[in-house]
Amino acid sequence: MAEKIKIAQYWGAGCGGCDVALLDIDAKILDVHAIAEVVFWPIGFDGKLHDIENMPDKSITVSFYNGAIRNSENEHVAKVLRQKSVIMISFGSCACYGGTPGLANVTNKQEVFQTVYKDTQSTDNAAGVMPLTHSKVKEGELELPEFYDTVKTLDEVVDVDYFMPGCPPTVNLIAMAVDAVAQHVTKGTPLPPKGAVIASDKTLCDECKRERVEKGRKIERIYQAYEITPDPKKCLLDQGIICIGPATRAGCGAMCPNAQMPCRGCMGPTKGVMEQGASMLSALSSLLGMTDSEAGLSEESIMNIMLQVKDPLGTFYAFTLPKSLLKRTVTEKKKKKTVT
């Protein structure tokens, strides 16, 4: 091949796991090297953003953006890469759905700063110094990115071509994406339709090898994972461990349930579903504490059954809060009642 294509990889609000995941494809990385030159990859080598900004538009073939949009820098780089790239891939759960950083949408900038720079036991900040976007020191003016109140997904700030969920995306999915791009570049094979999710369209349960009760399914009570040793063959949900599998997209090979850990939903909602949380709430509520004398149960006892689910928001939206319909928590003007 005459000229190598250019690829970029950037991290927004993420943990770096996605960057490492790209290396997990082992020898396949040589295929990438054969056709591509990495022009920007902050975790891999020292590149300068202004070099990217000075490149002609659409000169990068593929950009992999991982991490959510947490501050103005994340957003700026996302926009630059979008402008310079032919294909923009939302890589990993944080970019696609907000991921773990997205859970910060239950709070806001002020509360986050208060906790991090004041309240934590290990913080010694008597002067109450808080990060500022601009601060003057004797050497000149320093600038920090602006921290947002609300964590956003990548597709909220730029147009995204493909979504690759997973925390991080698994090796086979990355290999699939790399292959698709390589085939396209070398042989002209058409790419998947824009907006495609590089994963399966089925639910995780479809891939899971555990046996589930097919008829008369019900969950007696909820157990926290540490409370019981689950039967290694039976469905975790049937055993009372909350597994988000029924509301989660397949494609990861159900690695967690197969390793005795319940699914936490990093692959996001299944095709056609907007709310992974609502979907899981629906699935779990239909099974929990069903008895043969339902008509006689009081509303109060129903509430007590459901209160076994300790933290529905944190459990059902562990990876998708910024992508949910409500996106973040709100504040009632008047003092509100509580359920419990």
Binding site: E294, T329, E332, V339
Partner: peptide, 26 residues
């Protein structure tokens, strides 16, 4: 037969969830 039994479980948990989202459960 049993649709409403599912409904009332969902609504009970929805109230908890809406409260976590900051809404008054009422």
């Amino acid at each position: 037969i049993g649709g409403n039994y599912r409904t009332r479980r969902r609504m009970a948990l929805m109230k908890v969830l809406l409260q976590q989202f900051g809404f008054d459960p009422d």
